[in-house]
Design a protein around this nucleic acid. Sequence first.
DNA 1: CGCATCCTCCGGTTGC
DNA 2: TGCAACCGGAGGATG
Length: 290
Amino acid sequence: MPELPEVEGVVNALKPQVTGKTIKQVKISETVYHSHSLGKQTIIKGSLPDLLADALMDMRIEAVERRSKYIYFHVMKASNSYILVNHLGMSGAWFYVTHRDEITEAKFHRHIHVELLLDDGHWLIYSDIRRFGELRLIQQLSDYPPLLALAPEPFDQDAKAYFLKACELRKFKDKEIKAVIMDSHALCGCGNIYATEALFRMKINPGRKTSQLSGVEKEQLFETIVAVLTESIAFGGSSISDYRNINGEAGSMQNRLQMYGMNICPMCYTNTTQKIIAGRNSYYCPNCQK
DNA sequence: CGCATCCTCCGGTTGC
DNA sequence: TGCAACCGGAGGATG
């Protein structure tokens, strides 16, 4: 499940391979067509598959950017600019290959949904096992308002102040701190894995109410999240379940995680506790995290 | 109009 | 060996 560091890795791998390339052919899977015929917006959002395919034809990819856990492909066609917005969901993955059979992992090969032929002869392929991902073509961010509501990038100057202010809002202050740091309207890019790790490093119980943290704790927690995200980017992200970068490589941050998925606390050897917070399984050490 | 509470989307994985 | 339950980002509908 890709979080900010994993998406960062994907974007950094995509950049040199697709920047400046033009889309010359678009293929969309029968599965996507079929779901759309039933009225669902499977993977392709805000458009019918054929309309998206037509629109993408002859578009030139000007730049690739990560924003929160989204990938923005900045594209141009006939002097009009657009953004192809992509979210990998639980299991989305991009591949840059000369033939789709180069995708050797069966579960990725079996769930190829969008194939873009570039003018360098390579295929840029989107595979998505569970189809939770998203592709949406817009002209500007305001065409899809949820993108305007995202908190600043955690590495931006104003992100910490934005987060601290969000903690004071009525809708956040009485929530569990873990739910708040995983909410992209308070702080973006932090999912279950890195929220779990940051809270463990800070020795904060994920179930504590946000208003019960001191100002210093909230500030240090924010800094710890940034540190964990930064460390993960440096180690290529965490390859848990379906995450691969576009070269099919796995990251190594999963080997550095101290609490996510652990049954025993690495600090005190107490059995860890699992609790559902904000709908997601949360590991913590009942002894270390208060 | 704020907010809280479901609901939805999926197939690989897990557990019985 | 088979099969049902389970899991999860995040927007959207509902109350």
